[in-house]
Design a protein around this nucleic acid. Structure first.
Lengths: 109, 109
DNA sequence: CGTCGTACTTGGTGTTGCTATCTACCGGTA
DNA sequence: TACCGGTAGATAGCAACACCAAGTACGACG
């Protein structure tokens, strides 16, 4: 993955995944696949799985094991109340940062 | 510093500083002060100095020592051609990411 | 039985921002 | 003189996070 994107994903990927889960519950393999389709072509599975473990341990998501026809059982994640709070916090932080960066972008020559 | 902002700065702070230097050359203490005024209140000096060392070693900036009336000599940094390339790359990466995140933002309920 | 696609796990690495502390220079003040 | 605060920079150690690499597990299909 391009180094710059790798570094930029730190701190944003969690928000991205929480946001995806806020739309509707999903499991790791599915999330990875969707993100790859949406342009994050080089995103590696291990990253997403590790992130899911993290946000579960922090109590932002609930997990449900669902049997799959095509492989091992899926771990379907859904955001809970605490996760929604975290997501709101993410949007606040993002908005602040994006605003300042966009301002620098406009000021560039 | 809020944890979320800390993580989000990874990967963006370099672009922010390069962007500031692209407007006009500056030195570390000044850059830290300006960023703090602009809302990055908890940004620590050490972070900026370390970043400046990094981008100098990567050849993105040129340095000039300038005596100060109020303290030790300043190290004034200015972006060079390679730095401008890096900055362009930063804007491309940022635009891509921001677009996708804003889309998730709009889709939220 | 071997392979492919699905699905998840994990140990190690590199980058990066933060914490904390240090040095250095100057002016004002007790 | 001695001390303090503001200016200016450096750095060792830490934590978080994305990546890399390799592994396990399950079912279907040839």
């Amino acid at each position: 993955m391009a180094n710059q994107m790798t570094e930029m994903l730190k701190g944003t990927l969690e928000g991205i995944v929480l946001s995806i889960l806020a739309e509707r519950p999903a499991y790791g393999y599915e999330i990875t696949a969707r993100l790859r389709e949406q342009g994050f072509a080089d995103l590696v599975e291990g990253t997403v799985y590790a992130l899911l473990v993290r946000i579960e341990q922090r109590g932002f998501v609930d997990v449900q094991k669902v049997p799959s026809e095509k492989g091992p059982p899926r771990k379907v994640y859904s955001v809970n109340a605490q996760g929604r709070d975290q997501l709101e916090e993410f949007w606040r932080t993002w908005s602040f940062l994006a605003e300042r960066i966009e301002q620098l972008h406009r000021e560039r020559n």
